[in-house]
Write a protein that binds this DNA or RNA. Sequence first.
DNA 1: TGACGCCTAGACCGTATGGTCTAGACCACT
DNA 2: AGTGGTCTAGACCATACGGTCTAGGCGTCA
Lengths: 200, 200
Amino acid sequence: MDKEPTTATKQRMLDAGLTLLLEQGYHGVGVQAVLDAAQAPKGSFYHHFNDKEDFALQVVDAYMTGVHAALDASLSDSSRAPLDRIRGFFELVSQGYEHDGYLGCLLGGLGQELSGASDVFATKIDWCLGYIAGRLAEPLGEARARGDLTVAEDPAVLAQRLVECWEGAALHSRLLRDPSPLPAMLDFYFRAITRVPDDG
Amino acid sequence: MDKEPTTATKQRMLDAGLTLLLEQGYHGVGVQAVLDAAQAPKGSFYHHFNDKEDFALQVVDAYMTGVHAALDASLSDSSRAPLDRIRGFFELVSQGYEHDGYLGCLLGGLGQELSGASDVFATKIDWCLGYIAGRLAEPLGEARARGDLTVAEDPAVLAQRLVECWEGAALHSRLLRDPSPLPAMLDFYFRAITRVPDDG
DNA sequence: TGACGCCTAGACCGTATGGTCTAGACCACT
DNA sequence: AGTGGTCTAGACCATACGGTCTAGGCGTCA
């Protein structure tokens, strides 16, 4: 972590960028809008960031900082069963969505918008989602070792599916501006990999 | 179907729009780019469309025309089991994705990009995805009636989950420019609602 | 106190954008 | 032949965009 200290102005711009990019997307947000929201002049923007793309990438980094924190907070709690830890992670994430008015996931949003035209973003977002899946694979492996799972698939693969499912539910949540698809999808996913389905 | 006949020029613009919007998104595509791709002058664009938003909405309609065709073609084949018909639908959709270079789903793309700032688009895309889910609910209901399902949930709810799962896989496919998440997700989903998982 | 580096400040620039406007080609109908 | 509607054609406009540039405030260290 040999990062420079990140001045207050830069942090304000990143914070504003997080909100604005989530709501309006990359091309929907002008540099000026970030400046206005962060109460900063243009000079500061181009002092701290090479260009708009660099800015957005750093916003993604800032977003991932929060994700890391949520992952660490949830997955390390060894008093809970592995699958419960995963659930805890997504509950934290959901709380973040609530705070933003249920606009879904920044990674999904920017990924959809930019990955068709920008390899840089496609690679970055894919890496981020893959990282999350990688972290979730560990408790999934634990769960399998404990015999909690009723499916035999590689935990890494199961984790990929989980993240994909979540992103799909997050899109629906964004369209509805409503959280309901999120826990519904989690329930569906966990039932799929654990309990034998019951047709009662 | 009391639609006006849609001139060749208008159709060229819609076709170009489909490709361009899928690749670059709404804000990433200028009207001029559509004009160039369709070899049409600006006058034609604003003759056939009120504005850029109207154009994009009509591109979505054109996209849905293809979806309807795929739904009709797949779901009506009563010689196949209901779940096989659903699989057939997504196989057709996948072929469309292949044709476009695995850029995912236009509905997911525009939904993510625009639904934060435009209620019109949010509502429209949600309606489209809901319509697809509605169509898929029928064969799911049939499957349940036949005893093919091992879950008791409402077919409409299961169909919602399916569409969400698919959109999540389509995003991953787009990021990777690779189809592999699509059949993987379908396998996961169908296993979840049918066969008892096997830990062999 | 002078010099240097970091950061703020905002005027300014070239370009591309969405959208308008007028002119005219083409076709059907009378 | 004349007329009206549909569609093509592209010059044109105001604005907003991403990005550059110079100037100045401010703290630090010699």
